[in-house]
Simulated scan of single mutants.
Amino acid sequence: MKSFCYAVILSLTFGLSATAQKVFSVNYPNQADVKVFVVKYENQADLKVFKVNYPNQAGDNDGKWFFTDYQNQAKKKVYFVDYENQADLKIFFVSYQNQAGWRNSSKRHLLY
């Protein structure tokens, strides 16, 4: 029984932390897990995002996103909306990897 509890705890712990930010941009809002709006200024964003070049560089819900070529390779499907009030999450694309991260932690659950 004890080993079963440890196994469950480990799988939950590593399962949550292993959710890399591999995203796929879908064409329709009803296909998306999260609706995203790109803001003009960093201070308006919930999440600052850095686009990485390779899948192994994608972060653990820390704003480092890798855009996949195929939907089945992604952990989350996003749809980019035209208006801020349609979005679940507001993002700002940053130029450097160390700038990526959450500004509004209350929305962090959207990408788990």
Score class of each variant (00 low, 15 high):
95 S>G: 07
98 N>L: 12
67 F>H: 04
14 F>Q: 01
107 K>W: 08
50 F>M: 02
95 S>T: 04
96 Y>P: 11
48 K>V: 10
112 Y>G: 14
67 F>A: 05
72 N>P: 01
32 A>L: 02
38 V>T: 11
82 D>E: 09
28 Y>G: 15
108 R>L: 04
15 G>Q: 04
92 F>T: 00
6 Y>H: 14
33 D>R: 01
11 S>E: 12
93 F>R: 10
21 Q>V: 15
103 R>H: 15
18 A>P: 01
54 Y>R: 13
54 Y>V: 00
8 V>P: 11
38 V>F: 14
43 N>I: 07
89 L>V: 07
28 Y>V: 06
44 Q>L: 08
7 A>F: 04
103 R>Y: 13
47 L>G: 02
72 N>D: 08
108 R>P: 06
52 V>E: 02
100 A>I: 02
15 G>W: 08
96 Y>D: 00
49 V>T: 01
99 Q>R: 04
6 Y>G: 14
55 P>M: 10
66 F>S: 03
75 K>W: 07
8 V>N: 09
4 F>T: 13
56 N>W: 07
26 V>A: 01
33 D>V: 04
62 D>R: 11
44 Q>E: 03
85 N>Q: 03
89 L>I: 03
83 Y>R: 15
102 W>G: 03
81 V>F: 05
28 Y>E: 15
61 N>T: 06
38 V>Q: 11
3 S>Y: 07
107 K>F: 14
34 V>T: 10
16 L>C: 09
101 G>N: 03
33 D>F: 03
48 K>E: 05
106 S>W: 06
17 S>Y: 15
48 K>I: 12
15 G>P: 10
102 W>D: 06
77 K>T: 09
12 L>G: 08
78 V>P: 06
35 K>V: 07
73 Q>H: 02
12 L>C: 07
102 W>K: 06
75 K>E: 04
79 Y>L: 09
83 Y>I: 12
92 F>P: 02
42 E>K: 15
109 H>F: 15
37 F>L: 01
86 Q>I: 09
28 Y>D: 13
69 D>R: 15
37 F>G: 02
105 S>D: 13
33 D>N: 09
35 K>G: 05
106 S>L: 14
48 K>T: 13
1 M>P: 13
35 K>A: 05
